[in-house]
């Protein structure tokens, strides 16, 4: 464990909690892409299959459980509890265009052709594109509540911090996980234009992000 990874996990947790609380307290999921949240729940499900088979640390187990519970709870809030506020007309990204290539690639490019490893690889590739329905929805509606932009900021920051963690681990222990690093770079690049808008608009105190 290093400071970059710890900050990354905290940033990830903050993002997930921000989103859950925003929906739970405002009793509305307006502007939120349910499709992205389903993809994130799928990412955690396929990545944390070893939750019951291999114990790594209390921290590892607790964080996996928290991520799984909060992501499924968020999907529940969007599609069941507050489904009347779910804007399905704006959440139209064709997720099959993500799932099929990601599934195909995880069979082609992985470290070990076993179910656990292929599902882990699937979760890594899927996570790098899971935010696209949400970013697409924002470009389609042309705006996002500021709380949603804070969620996206911490979510994008988390993988950027993981990139720093991999640079650090490469230089200190020679560790290099090419699949995770390449996917992490792609994932973080998708946030770049959002980061620019976030810094230039939201942090200037605008109530919400409106796209030009």
């Amino acid at each position: 464990m290093n400071v970059f990874r710890l900050l990354g996990d905290v940033s990830h947790l903050v993002a997930i909690i921000i989103l859950f609380l925003k929906i739970f307290r405002s009793k509305s999921c307006a502007g939120i892409s349910g499709k992205s949240q389903v993809l994130f729940a799928l990412v955690f499900t396929t990545r944390y299959l070893d939750l019951f088979t291999s114990f790594i640390s209390i921290y590892n187990t607790v964080m996996k459980v928290v991520f799984l519970v909060l992501s499924y709870a968020t999907v529940y809030l969007i599609y069941l509890r507050f489904r009347s506020s779910y804007d399905s007309e704006s959440d139209t990204f064709r997720v099959e265009f993500l799932l099929v290539p990601v599934a195909g690639l995880s069979f082609l490019e992985n470290y070990d052709f076993t179910p656990i490893e292929i599902l882990w690889t699937f979760s890594i590739y899927l996570e790098s594109v899971a935010i696209l329905p949400q970013l697409f929805m924002i470009t389609k509606t042309g705006e996002a509540e500021s709380i949603t932009t804070h969620y996206l900021f911490f979510l994008g920051l988390y993988r950027a911090l993981y990139l720093a963690n991999w640079v650090w681990r490469y230089h200190t222990e020679g560790f290099f996980d090419q699949i995770a690093v390449v996917s992490g770079v792609v994932q973080t690049i998708f946030y770049c234009d959002f980061f620019y808008l976030y810094v230039t608009k939201v942090l200037k105190g605008n109530s919400k992000l409106t796209l030009p």
Partner: peptide
């Protein structure tokens, strides 16, 4: 560089 994944990262 090693090509492996870490099992302790989230």
């Amino acid at each position: 560089a090693m090509m492996s994944r870490s099992h302790d990262e989230l």
